[in-house]
Design a protein around this nucleic acid. Structure first.
Lengths: 108, 108
DNA sequence: TCAGTTAGTTACTATATGTAAGTAATTATA
DNA sequence: TATAATTACTTACATATAGTAACTAACTGA
């Protein structure tokens, strides 16, 4: 057997990144802090899942939630340093997708 | 509204990569062509899902399946050029995980 | 003939995701 | 004052995906 077991940190990273929507949320937040409903409509996720994912990402220290007690209250989500450090990775995905994928309109 | 909608190619890439197990399978295949049961035990996926994922990845042109009509038959899975081109991306994930994650033993 | 191996498939249960409607706090409008 | 609108959620429920375990086909070796 030549299998070397996979590194637990790599596996953990994959667990985070391979959850549906996580990547798109991080990518979307790279363009700057923004509100719940903005992310929601930009990537086409439902409120239910966005709420869930943002909590996950917050607990991973990747996303920061800030409440501005204005009127009406404004809540902004942004990337932490840990979150912003995923930018090179996102750029790699972008690069790969530009080189190897055709845009698809239909639901394959 | 400042949302710029997300690029369809990027979204497609994310759809592939954010399916559970896909990343680990590709990562595992970066170490060279290997058999079904080797991948299975290296990453801890079940046969049912590995079979499903390998079919998906084959149809995306990322993985190649080769049958060697030896006895007993040997079936090897390997990355295509498109698949190997994901290496820099995998290295980025590895790098990020080394820098930002603690290995976890418990089920968080 | 019986057990073992590889590469799966099938059947079933558990978990995750999608959809739609509901809620709380607040402001704006009739 | 009542009604509607907005934001950031939550709840309830249906459907899809994942996990587990047992089974199968083709073959070998004892």
């Amino acid at each position: 057997m030549n299998q070397s077991l996979i590194c637990p940190r790599f596996e953990k990273a994959m667990n985070i990144l391979s959850k549906r929507w996580t990547g798109l949320i991080i990518y979307q937040l790279l363009s700057g802090p923004q509100r719940f409903c903005n992310i929601e409509s930009a990537i086409g996720i439902s409120g239910r899942l966005l709420s869930e994912r943002l909590k996950d990402l917050e607990s991973e220290g990747i996303v920061k939630r800030e409440v501005f007690p204005e009127t009406p209250v404004r809540i902004e989500y942004s990337l932490t340093e840990k979150g912003r450090s995923l930018e090179p990775l996102m750029k790699e995905i972008e690069k790969w997708s530009q080189t190897w994928l055709e845009p698809e309109n239909s639901k394959e």
